[in-house]
Each structure stands twice: as structure tokens, then as C-alpha cells.
Design a protein around this nucleic acid. Structure first.
Lengths: 343, 343
DNA sequence: CTGAAAGCGCTTACAG
DNA sequence: CTGAAAGCGCTTACAG
């Protein structure tokens, strides 16, 4: 049987502070906010009272005046996924520095749920919105909203929106350049689900570099499959079977690379001596525990999240940020590609 | 050079709606809120105006009246960790059903940062707080706050606080019972960092069951190490070296179990025929990609988060929830323990 | 059924 | 240097 609501431990109000300090509400406000026109002694009395009452100004009341809520909405589409979290962390971090709080919603890839959360957030008068996609492919625009929106990780299809994404083509290039620097010349490309733009982009970046340098891609067409260890094991089997002289395998993800490493080891190939292997995503738990540790590409998602927040703050301040922005990934070399061999 | 702030696309206000509908603000409010004392035709006019102006009531103004913000604060300590995320998802989900929004902060295990975020959240007049720890060991209490607090995953050391945790002893029991049901009699316990209470709790649960049943624990003392694949590989080597007749290995985490599986496979043991292996945490990406797929224990963290939110709502409504609450984990059997063998 | 008034907790011109 | 008053956008008794 529910009891009647617990005695509300009413928070002290500015009026309480003013009364205790023996001044008007207006003066208490000015004292607390460091306005210059207050006698030092009065200010001290007000602070003392505020302290004693554990006064904490009601942000809702303050914001009603300013017209800004000091909050941003973060709508994510795969809270359980490993890609949105670092992005979210970066945004939260950037927001915290600007004394902005983050309202988090998980829309789970569902457009209806997204609309619902959007309404709730707009009702709370968020100053802006960051929408984090589940995968890097473009998504439909939310259209014109009363506050600025930044699309992070998954860009909006509408170029008039502000989007920020990871540069997967550059990621592919990085890894290919590294393979060449390690002296590899017969390189296989094993990647994931061809439905993902990221799979194609990473392959495109790698091919561009390999072709330009005249390195051989074996087999000549990249192998698409799924983003799994299982596929990595299978694909590696195919590659070494058809092209026993392969000396490098560029994988579209760390999971795939883990599978590739397993098959190579079990077939007696030495990594990196016989075959160098690279992953993608720099998922530490997979990359660092691999045997040998896995060279990978880090998308710098936390940086992406941070920049998304910066773009949003800029837009909130009226500075224009329209269009696509890009975060360049970085290579994280580890033992699976061995020490660099010049030339 | 920053331009002057973008022309504020001022949101429509209730006054705007009232004016357009040709009624007073009070009547507009009543119409929109479904109060009975409004003529149907008037109500229609008001709704029409609201629609046309895309009116969305300012929650800050509404909340100022009610004294409730309709938000809860979620303070997490390892946003990048895999444990807080499901908890957070469950809480967000439960909150959403109650039309409550979630303010997210990441304190990163830092008490100072936690204090800072706490102040910000209290300033925003959150109706309550959920504090999610980074690991299951007890943490210090935040003391008396003006709103209810629920400690999730990591309990408060103060029994007067409300805490909800996963039952690691039960998890250990589950897995041991399963081993016995699979006909295993000489079982090794390989777990992680002894600094973690969870390591001991899981071992204690398993031992309790194994001892009761008279199964042999080999070696007689559990092997503590780190929560890594590397340690799993090493530990498995020790175990099969000293106890070649081992027929089951209970691991303290899925990572450890992955390492154990690797060593077993490479030493020629068949899993589960020769040795059954279990993990813990049911980290799908590891468990499902293992060879064979890994039997594990799911802590039901999403459920934990959901219950944390329910406890918080109860406390906000004045129903008492003090003390420790527990979520019972569940076994997820997969191929690494093989089909059940009765007896 | 409708509206004028008070008030939620604050800040900010504007007078003294 | 201090305070009375207006107002942010809403809701809710209270009169008409």
C-alpha cells in the first residue's frame, strides 16, 4: 500500500536566503551573482546564509529568464553498440566544459521512437541536438527544427544539414600505406557486409594506394562477407588456398582480423613474418588480446563526438556550420605488421 | 569572426496560441490540457491554433509550477566500460515509459568530478539520481541529498542507502550446477583480479555447489590473475599440466574463457568432449564468436538498470526502498559445455 | 464556459 | 549600495 509521498525536503529558495541575510531578493541575487553594486559586508552575509541553507539556484527558473536551457539532446541509435559510446563520451565531455548538460535518449534505430524523443527534448527546450547514427551510412534528415542539429557518425542525406563523420577512405589509405611501408606486395582485402558504405570506403582507400604503387591485390576483387570472426577464418582459408604467396591481409574490422589471425596460425603461417595483418576500428579488447597484437585504425570517435558538440555550440551561437565535416582516423601499429621495413 | 547570433526562431508560446484562437491564456491552457470546463468548439479552435504554430509547451515553465523537473540524473563511472551501458539502457528505457528524461554525466571514477556533476544535476532539480559504479565493489555513500539516490551495480557502503547489484555468488552457483549436470567431476576455477569482490563471489558460489556435491576442485585453490585472454591462456596451461584429467574449467569472465579455449585447442583437447568450459558476463561478441561458442552467465544488467529506475521512482513517490536489492543472473548454455548429460 | 489574478523561482532594468 | 516591480511561460483556484 503506497504511503503518502515522503515529506518534501524542500530546497532553499533565494527568498529564504534573502530573508536570513536580511536583504531583499534582488540584492541577494546580485550578491550571489557577483554583481559589482553590492557592499562587501552585505555580500558576505548573503553568502553565509546561502551556505547555511545549502542554497543551489533553481536552474529552471534561471533558464526561463534567459530563454536557454543549458542542455543539449543526444539521440543515439545504438546505445549498446561500440561506436556510439565513444562519440557520446566525447560530446558529454565537450558539453561539460561549457557547463551544458546532456539529455540522453536511445531511439534504437526506430524513426518513430526518434520522433517521440525529439518532441520530449524540444519540450524541454534543449538548445540543440546531436543525433548519433548506428552506422556510418547516410540517414534521412529531420528537416527544420527550432534548434540546431548536428548529425554525428551517420551523416544526414541533406547537405544543408550539419554532419560530422569518420573518413573511412582515409582509414583504408592509412592501412595500405603501412602495408607498403612494411614491404608487402601481394595483399588481400577481406571486409564485412557489403551493405555498409564503410566496407566499400575502406576498400576504396586501400585500393587507391595499392594501385598507385603497383602492389598486387590478391584475389583481385575484395572479399565481402560479414563483420565476424567466423568470416575472417573462412576468408583467410580462401585467400591462402588460392594465393599461397600472399604477404599481407587488410581486414575491414578487428573482428574479421581476429578470425584471419586464427586461421593463419592454425595453418602454420607466421604473423607478421609470412603474412602481415591489419584490422580496423581499434577495438582494444580485441586488438590488444590478439596474437600477435593487432595493428588497427582508430576512428577517433571521442574526438568526433567532441567536434560534434563544438559544431553544435557554434551553431547555437549563430555561427554557421552547415555541410559535411570529417574526422581523420589514425593508424595504431602493433605487432601484427611487425617493425617497419623501409622501402 | 563570429557573426551575431542567428535570428532566434522563437518558439510559439501559449500566449501566441491564445491570441490566435481568440481566447485567454487560461482557457487555452485548459483546452490543451483536456480540462472538462471548455466548450468543444473553443477547444477545437485552440488546438487548431496550437497546431498551426507548432506549439510545444515549455517544460521548464510547467515544472517550475509543479516543483518536479521530470528528469533524473544518471551518473556513470565507466561510460566506455561494457557494464554500465546495459544498466544505463535499462534505466533510460524505464524512465522513458514514465515520461521522465535522463540527464547523463560521466564521472570517470573520479570523486571530484562526481561532486561537480552532482551539483549541476541538483541545480537542474532532477527528481532523483542513479549512480552507476564501474565495478561491483561497494563505494562510499554520497550522504543525504535533497533527492533520492539509487546506487546501481556498485552498492553504497551505507545500508541506509538504496542499492541494487548483481548476485555474483548466484552466478557462480549457476555455472557449477551446470557443470555437474554435464557430468563433470574434476573442475578448475580460473578467475581474474583478486582485488575484485566479483572474482571471489563467483568462486564462492561455484565452490559451494561443487563441495556440496563432492566434486573435485583442481587445483584445490582457484587461480587468480587478470581479466584477460592472456591470463586465460597461461592459466589453462598450468591447469592441464598439473591436472591432465581435468574435465571442466569455470572461468571468471568470457575473456579469460577465450584464452582458455585457445590453449585447450592448441594442446589438442576437445571442448566440450574432453573439457567443458564456461565464461561469465555473456559478452556476446566474445561468447558467440568463440570456438566452440561459449556457455556463460548473463548478469541481466539491463534488467538491473530498469529495476534501479523503478526503485528510484518508488522513492520519488515516497515509497521506501532502503537497503540492498539484488538481480539474479541467468545461465546461457552454449556449445562449450555440450549437450546436457543427466546425472 | 471563460478570464483576470496570483504565483512557481529567479534576474534585471529602474528608482531611490 | 539597496529594493520594489516587471516578467520569463505556464497552471490553477477563484470569480463571473
Amino acid at each position: 500500500m503506497p504511503r503518502k509521498p515522503e515529506q518534501k525536503r524542500k530546497q532553499a529558495t533565494l527568498a529564504d536566503v534573502a530573508q536570513m541575510a536580511g536583504v531583499s531578493i534582488a540584492t541577494a541575487s546580485k550578491a550571489l551573482n557577483g554583481r559589482s553594486q553590492v557592499k562587501a559586508e552585505t555580500r558576505a552575509r548573503v553568502f553565509e546564509a546561502a551556505e547555511k541553507l545549502k542554497f543551489s539556484p533553481n536552474a529552471m527558473a534561471q533558464n526561463l529568464l534567459t530563454g536557454r536551457s543549458g542542455t543539449i539532446g543526444l539521440v543515439t541509435h545504438d546505445l549498446d553498440g561500440r561506436f556510439s559510446i565513444p562519440t557520446l563520451m566525447g560530446a558529454e565531455d565537450a558539453a561539460g566544459h561549457g557547463r551544458t548538460s546532456v539529455l540522453l535518449c536511445d531511439a534504437r534505430g526506430d524513426a518513430l521512437r526518434e520522433r517521440y524523443h525529439l518532441q520530449a527534448l524540444l519540450g524541454r527546450r534543449v538548445d540543440g541536438l546531436i543525433v548519433v547514427g548506428a552506422r556510418p551510412d547516410p540517414r534521412s534528415s529531420l528537416g527544420t527544427l527550432p534548434v540546431p542539429v548536428v548529425y554525428a557518425y551517420a551523416p544526414s542525406t541533406d547537405p544543408r544539414d550539419t554532419s560530422i563523420v569518420t573518413d573511412n577512405v582515409a582509414g583504408g589509405r592509412l592501412v595500405a600505406e603501412h602495408m607498403l611501408a612494411c614491404g608487402r606486395r601481394r595483399i588481400a582485402l577481406v571486409t564485412g557486409d557489403p551493405e555498409y558504405g564503410a566496407a566499400h570506403d575502406r576498400v576504396a582507400g586501400a585500393r587507391e594506394v595499392l594501385d598507385r604503387d603497383g602492389a598486387e591485390v590478391v584475389p583481385s576483387e575484395p572479399l565481402y562477407g560479414t563483420w565476424s570472426e567466423e568470416w575472417g577464418r573462412t576468408a583467410a582459408g580462401l585467400v591462402i588456398n588460392q594465393h599461397p604467396d600472399v604477404d599481407g591481409i587488410i581486414c575491414g574490422s578487428d573482428q574479421i582480423a581476429r578470425g584471419v589471425l586464427d586461421t593463419l596460425r592454425e595453418s602454420g603461417r607466421k604473423v607478421p613474418d609470412d603474412v602481415a595483418v591489419t584490422g580496423h576500428d581499434n577495438w582494444e579488447i580485441l586488438a590488444v588480446n590478439a596474437r600477435p597484437q593487432l595493428t588497427s585504425v582508430d576512428m577517433r570517435l571521442e574526438e568526433l563526438g567532441r567536434q560534434a558538440a563544438e559544431l553544435l555550440f557554434a551553431a547555437i551561437d549563430g555561427r554557421t556550420t552547415k555541410g559535411g565535416h570529417v574526422v581523420t582516423p589514425r593508424l595504431v601499429p602493433r605487432a601484427s605488421t611487425g617493425p617497419r621495413v623501409s622501402g
